[in-house]
Design a protein around this nucleic acid. Structure first.
Lengths: 220, 220
DNA sequence: CTATATTGTTACCCATGAGTAACTTAAACT
DNA sequence: AGTTTAAGTTACTCATGGGTAACAATATAG
């Protein structure tokens, strides 16, 4: 779930803490505690960004949610935009992870696509993911904006691959995979903007309806 | 195309200018000129908002695009947020106009829906509409936010009606019209974020693909 | 049990940008 | 013509909020 790449680096570098990690009661190491706090900050920030939007949420707001003061945040993040970047890392890892498991199964393209949609609807209820979807592309730094776009294109491309595969194996209708992939993403990402777990509409019904429209369309 | 309700009010009030309107060469009255300028400002603002985002676009930027200085803008708009509101008015009028013509035809629900999609893809290439779609819901004022939501819900409701009609007349598959309406909107609105007229993908191909996926789905 | 790195705080700086006051120029109606 | 209204300008105020410097507390290691 968390930003564990940094953590692995840290553990690899400071080999003396391996001893600690091996203790029966897993006393959280500093790096772990730090990681947990960073995740909490991301969660708080993402929730606030979703509610008020990125620009209307001040770092003071986020700090308050986390019950610390603003400068403390700078111990965990580089600057405000860095929060979005870290959310993107989390999102990228989860979505690509889903794609990994989906493409690993030996099934036709259509089944893979169905499994992806099921997993994606699940993922898209997470605040950090929703934050990323909503604010992707709003990077101030041109470099960061390009990187973000690239990573998004990569994911889209993997979905396109699945659709293409389905076209070849006959499980998906002949179509323009690029457009279909984008439209599908738009519809799924749109869900992130309005769907709430607590709402009246239950999860299974949502997935059922989404799958039905994607597979069958609306025509009778 | 423009914000002509204000204009009608104005003309109604100042009846002496009716004479002018009836001239062979339609010399633009003050109210008309003002309206044209307001439209141009909205266009410039919408284009800038789409490129850099609302908060990263200053009123100075917009004024510069329009080749005036910032205070001049305040002659046409109440404040920054008012630009979004005025864009919403334009968008609401266009979309409801489309819905009017679509529901007026005596056809089954499916055909009406198809005509709506065709028209909407057309509409969604306009900067002012795209601006509204992207920034809808970002109202600072709670009052304005609620109004915006309400007007959006109304449009969604009309689409739902069309789908429901199709369900009853048998032209559209039995389904949950609410979810279908929302998903459809998400997909169509998503188009506004990436589609450009000048691009390689031509308009007809886009509409064809969108209609195909909505009607047939992806399954073979 | 001290020395050191890690977290955290209070108190500031300062760029940005929305909005306004006061004044100037241009147009329009009688 | 000359007075009024519209349209635009220059030169400001002022709140907000990102980011930092310098200092304080707490935990970890030797």
């Amino acid at each position: 779930m968390g930003n564990n790449i940094d953590m692995i680096n840290r553990i690899g570098k400071a080999d003396k803490m391996i001893k600690k990690v091996k203790l029966s009661r897993p006393a959280p190491s500093r790096a772990e505690k730090r990681q947990i706090k960073l995740d909490a900050i991301l969660r708080h920030a993402a929730a606030a960004f979703m509610e008020k939007g990125y620009y209307k949420t001040s770092l003071d707001d986020i700090a308050r949610l986390h019950k610390v003061t603003k400068p403390t945040l700078y111990y965990y993040i580089k600057n405000k935009e860095d929060i979005l970047i870290k959310c993107e890392e989390v999102a990228s890892r989860r979505i690509n992870g889903l794609l990994d498991t989906v493409t690993a199964i030996e099934e036709c393209g259509f089944v893979q696509l169905r499994k992806f949609i099921e997993g994606y609807v699940e993922i898209v209820t997470d605040d950090i993911i929703r934050c990323h979807i909503r604010h992707r592309g709003q990077r101030e730094d041109a470099q960061a904006r390009k990187a973000s776009l690239k990573m998004h294109r990569a994911i889209e491309h993997r979905v396109r691959e699945i659709i293409g595969r389905g076209g070849r194996d006959g499980s998906i209708r002949e179509c323009n995979p690029t457009i279909i992939a984008i439209l599908l993403f738009d519809a799924l990402n749109g869900i992130s903007a309005w769907y709430r777990d607590e709402g009246e509409l239950n999860h299974e019904e949502l997935i059922t309806q989404v799958l039905l429209i994607v597979t069958e369309g609306v025509k009778n």
